[in-house]
Every structure is written in structure tokens, then in C-alpha cells.
């Protein structure tokens, strides 16, 4: 849930643009430029990954990009620190299971287009 009324802080007048993104294929709304984790949390999503060895659910934790708790697969790239990575319109965000997955086509497609420039 987003905080709207607050005795000291003014959030509602300063919110960035609302954008659509996808969590596990499901459409959600969040604020552009704020960390991905913030919009997920506000949408009630607290489990961001399942750990590698013990398959433990993990979520938001350090909030400043220094731990591994909030790693998710974002647009085909695993280990994205969602607590510091800004949300962009249309992002596809998935829970990371273990090491997650790498979408080679996606990544190499990007690298390939670099070569053509």
C-alpha cells in the first residue's frame, strides 16, 4: 500500500508517473523511477526470490543495494537488485528461483546490436 496521508511527509503531490509493469506475467502499476522493490511491496508482493541452497523465501531487506535478498529476474537478467533498480514502464519482473534464469537471446540480442552500430 502506498502512503497517502502522512503528518510530516508529503508524498501524494510528489509522486512520479504511474507506469504499468508485469510481475510473473501479471499486470501491475507502480511509480516510474522509484525502486522496483517499492512498487512490488506496495502491490503486496513480499517474496522476491527463493534462495539457492535451502529454497527459502526472501524479500526486501537492506534497501540500499548491498545484500542479495531482493534479487529478481528483470527482463531476462537475474540477480537484479530490485531495491535500487528504478522501475521502468513495461518491465517484466519475475521471482528468482535459485540462480534464476538468463535469457541468452535477449542479452545477446542487445550485444549483437551494439556490434552493428
Amino acid at each position: 500500500m502506498w502512503l497517502e496521508e502522512h503528518p510530516i511527509l508529503d508524498f501524494s503531490s510528489k509522486r512520479p508517473k504511474l507506469v504499468k509493469f508485469y510481475f510473473e506475467g501479471k499486470e501491475m502499476w507502480g511509480y516510474e523511477g522509484l525502486p522496483i522493490a517499492a512498487s512490488l511491496h506496495a502491490n503486496g508482493i513480499k517474496v522476491y526470490r527463493y534462495s539457492t541452497r535451502l529454497n527459502r523465501p526472501r524479500g526486501f531487506f537492506c534497501a540500499i543495494g548491498k545484500c542479495s535478498s531482493c534479487f529478481m529476474v528483470v527482463d531476462g537478467v537475474p540477480n537484479v537488485r530490485t531495491c535500487i533498480t528504478p522501475l521502468r514502464e513495461g518491465m517484466r519482473i519475475e521471482r528468482q528461483r535459485g540462480l534464476g534464469k538468463i535469457d541468452l537471446n535477449l542479452i545477446q540480442g542487445e550485444a549483437g546490436s551494439d556490434d552493428n552500430v
Binding site: 534462495s51 539457492t52 541452497r53 535451502l54 527459502r56 526472501r58 531487506f61 545484500c67 542479495s68 535478498s69
Partner: peptide
């Protein structure tokens, strides 16, 4: 329930 010491490598106390 495990007591997690290290979240990255899932090491328990």
C-alpha cells in the same frame, strides 16, 4: 526453522 547467518550462500548458525 533455520537460523540464517548468510543470506547469499544460505549458511546457517
Amino acid at each position: 526453522d533455520p537460523i540464517i547467518v548468510c543470506r547469499c550462500e544460505d549458511v546457517t548458525l
